[in-house]
Design a protein around this nucleic acid. Structure first.
Lengths: 229, 229
DNA sequence: CGATGTCTGGCATTCAGTGCCAGAGTAGGG
DNA sequence: CCCTACTCTGGCACTGAATGCCAGACATCG
């Protein structure tokens, strides 16, 4: 066989999604999928590992792609994580044929929901690891884990909106806005005291050491706002 | 039977944890647990639902307690969520006999890890729901979900530290510090623009509408710092 | 052609999980 | 005291996921 992850596998996934949707996840057996696709039951378990993994097969590939992307990314840690999240979002949006019916199944079925949650936890762990390695190595700090979780939360928030209404055209805009808000949130946690950053249209955040002279602080903030304002 | 969730059930859980630890999770069968505890296999499934749920039985009770606590809490939404997180942390710390060996099992076993992750996702969803209901109802906003995820991330960060070293006495202090950082993070997301808040020793965050006059902003920041500094 | 490696299907087995039924114990009502 | 209703329990049988083992199909290389 030329492509292990190609046509054959995807055809099986699509058939499985259809069966799950029509007859219900529990009522659909691996033997049934085998019969419907012409692939033997044994081979299904060999390829996918488990019944759940038939539904999430494409998702696992996406995860590996995203991790490789981050590792190779020349951007700053925060930027590469945000770009990685964008990649994940794209992974869903570009394949509604699978992701949308899967979302419906996931919502109806606690076990599948847990599987989906575990998937996002894997992303979160990967994001934490990437941020931690880029900011000194060792175990991820509290700040790093909070930022990673915020990225995931923002991603999932926008994603769920799209999954509920896949025809909505504003999803990408909302996604980018959400990520910018997370960036603004993350900045004060990572930057050295004294930095001043600003979200472009609504918020300015100033971070400085507690002992800074108030007059000096005021001068800096004023200056930063004038520059960007 | 007087107490359904009392002695008998706990004894079974402890025995199961011991078996899982000694012989491995996969190698331990429900029939084995039944034999070791004197409870029939059938009754184990009736009480716990599944093999995994034997390990997480106590945890499910904790979840319900925490949700009820939040619903009855007279505090502000943020405060009651932070207090709820503290309750969860306490649920782990006060019962190391189960939570510590379970953590080792969870780390070694992907399926159990997923289960643990699903549990924390349930908390996160409950926190989001609570914050959403208190801030206008409807679906949780992006801000609400980010804050809930930050609370969970901070909780988990400190919890994992304790689980790795349960004898460490500084866990509670670190927990409270982490929650204060999350509070500082959450405040600017919820407050009306124009507010000024400060973490007590290191950081001051100013949030204001983009159009604010720089001089006015500088005056406000200076004032806020003088008050607290 | 023979040797090797890989993918596949069939078969048997283990074990989690569920439905069904029968017995033990308990509480309440006559 | 007895009858009834309810609940908890254990035993039994069954489905289905998941795995190990083995044999056949097929391609590759020498």
């Amino acid at each position: 066989m030329v492509e292990r992850n190609g046509g054959g596998t995807r055809a099986v996934v699509l058939a499985a999604v259809r069966l799950f949707t029509e007859a219900g996840y529990d009522a659909t057996t691996m033997a049934g999928i085998a019969e419907a696709t012409g692939v033997s039951r044994r081979s299904l378990f060999r390829r996918f590992g488990s019944k759940e993994d038939v539904l999430f097969a494409e998702h696992d590939e996406l995860f590996e792609t995203v991790v490789r992307y981050m590792e190779a990314s020349p951007e700053s840690p925060t930027d590469s994580v945000l770009a990685a999240a964008r990649l994940v979002f794209q992974g869903y949006v570009r394949d509604p044929e699978i992701t949308v019916p899967r979302y419906r199944l996931v919502r109806a079925h606690p076990r599948l929901r847990d599987r989906e949650v575990a998937m996002t936890a894997r992303y979160q762990a990967a994001f934490s690891r990437h941020l931690a390695e880029a900011t000194g190595g060792g175990r991820p700090s509290l700040e790093v884990e909070v930022v990673a979780s915020a990225v995931i939360a923002a991603h999932n928030h926008v994603l769920r909106g799209w999954l509920r209404d896949p025809d909505d055209e504003g999803a990408w805009r909302r996604f980018d806005e959400a990520m910018e808000r997370v960036r603004a949130l993350a900045a004060p946690l990572f930057e050295e005291p004294g930095e001043v950053t600003s979200d472009r249209d609504r918020i300015v955040v100033a971070v400085y050491p507690g002992g800074t002279d108030p007059a000096e602080l005021a001068r800096r903030v004023t200056e930063a706002v004038r520059e960007r304002g």
